[in-house]
Nucleic acid binder design. Sequence first.
DNA 1: CCCTTGAATGTAAGCGCTTACATGCTAGTC
DNA 2: GACTAGCATGTAAGCGCTTACATTCAAGGG
Lengths: 342, 342
Amino acid sequence: MNDGRQAPTLADVAARAQVSTATVSRCINFPDRVAEDTRQRVTEAINDLGYSPNFGARVMAARRTMTVGAIIPTMENAIFARGLQAFQEELGNHGYTLLVASSSYRADLERDQIKALVARGADALLLIGHDRDPEIYRFLEARQIPVLVTWAFDPAAPRPSVGFDNRAAMRALADRVIGLGHRNLGLISAEIASNDRARARRDGILDAMAAAGLPRDALTVIETPYGIETGAEAFDTLMQRDAPPTAVLCANDVLAVGALRRARELGLEVPDDVSITGFDDIELAQVALPALTTVHVPHRDMGRRAARMLVAALEGGPAPEPTLLQATLTMRDSLGPVPKPG
Amino acid sequence: MNDGRQAPTLADVAARAQVSTATVSRCINFPDRVAEDTRQRVTEAINDLGYSPNFGARVMAARRTMTVGAIIPTMENAIFARGLQAFQEELGNHGYTLLVASSSYRADLERDQIKALVARGADALLLIGHDRDPEIYRFLEARQIPVLVTWAFDPAAPRPSVGFDNRAAMRALADRVIGLGHRNLGLISAEIASNDRARARRDGILDAMAAAGLPRDALTVIETPYGIETGAEAFDTLMQRDAPPTAVLCANDVLAVGALRRARELGLEVPDDVSITGFDDIELAQVALPALTTVHVPHRDMGRRAARMLVAALEGGPAPEPTLLQATLTMRDSLGPVPKPG
DNA sequence: CCCTTGAATGTAAGCGCTTACATGCTAGTC
DNA sequence: GACTAGCATGTAAGCGCTTACATTCAAGGG
């Protein structure tokens, strides 16, 4: 049956414990449906043999993998790490495993990753943001794979989501910035066309500006990939304009830290010469000097809830309700009043 | 065959393309063994049906998953992110997929994760550091699963590894510190007993001290979990001693950044009042203020090579040779001469 | 003492794919 | 024209597990 060079199978265990494979399987999956002494014999055989079930076979027979997939835009920086960690922990509590893939913020790669995770048998998927080719949603729907969108909230979207209102959160921050007298703003953002979170954040700024009666061209937007270095360069570009902004809002903390660094290199004091703000409130934000004024995102709570919602959906509960969490303004030291001219 | 509510199977595709399942399978796995027009018909059927192969079935039939597992101590900070990213990219180039799990620096969790990845069919494993219950290595060996240890290098270890010499690298740094006149040193480290990298780094410092004729108790070691906050606290503890060290070496950049922050909070100038150094050279090190003097680890190169070695082992090449990479001292601004007394 | 009941276990049919082997054809060779 | 290669394709046997259904047996009821 098994020459010893192969991983032991259910049949090997069954033979050793002198029971049928069905009994061994039951021992593993429903221990209470097996008599005490049989179970003991089987357990012993399992240990002796160092048996562990073959995942592929199991998946195939049971038609589910107990696996949830998540696709995040990037692993390179910590933006998604904390939320994902919480997501994973909570999934673990329910017996599910997490499979992570990253898309490098590219729609085509994300598409491939989604298909790959599905092909690997992900029972459900966690996705960041709503923006996505409808074809993908159709694909997922056809396969009846529960999907949860996070990091964004949109009660109008035809899919459940758990997240916060990016637009309102950024608006609150922009209100504050404008309230401090800034009339000439810069925004360093990820690409806006394909990224609903980035778009919502920009729109939040525009909302605040409109409310304050500022013209739309009082905001200069620079789009750039995420990264400390790219943030620094974008800041440079902004500062080289004829009338450089007095406050530079960044669509996330990583970009903001880059901007902060370049400001220092340019000999600009923050916030005395120019204000800089972030978004996300990752660890970096507290460590930066000056500490970053930013929007705190409830990463862990979001991750945990996402896990619960997905598990509920998988275990046959009703479709999860969209859930709105609060992102809160976190004032630290990088935002100050508009500098006096001269 | 299929009521349309189920994911389409090979058989569905075969029926639609009017060929056998074997031909469809060949089309997917060995396109050049199929006639041009047949292939076209099959491809069309695949697209029409939105077919994607069932992973479990595939694994089972082919007896391999094209998956490599990696277990890292933590995802919470960026220490392993860059190396892992490179690892993943290179694996992808060879058609393999990466599965990541994190152990939270706990040996028991790591053990579980290893078993879980194996159960999921990981064809090979990437592990950080050598320290590990021998039983685990036996388990892996019995299953003939190639293992590569990284982030550490030990030609004497009975397993292939690709990494750098933690001890020599830290010694080089410590030599420099001592050369600057420091005679009273502190070390903030992860737990040393169960972590060969941490141990090697400490030993590197002791080597340098011995060479300079310093007594062993000129080094005060504080062990703490990794984190910015814990680094800050450890620094505090160190500074409250009767004769606080003039140079605090940290076993990684994350701890060092915490130390840096606390120093600032305590009103200490770095490096004028106290020197602080890191290890790893993650992005954080450059952004910190003052920029961190640290040891640069060739993350990307290490990840890329690790992937190549594992792939080679899987494709039946000879066992990979242990590979030593260089970690280099990176002088920035947080290390200076010992302060003048008074 | 026979029958019913239900707990414990066994039997065996797939799950969707890969692949060794068999078959059928076309084209080239003498 | 018969024969051989060799390519394209088909047939069918698993891969290791789960689970519906069948069987066995002991205990309790009439």
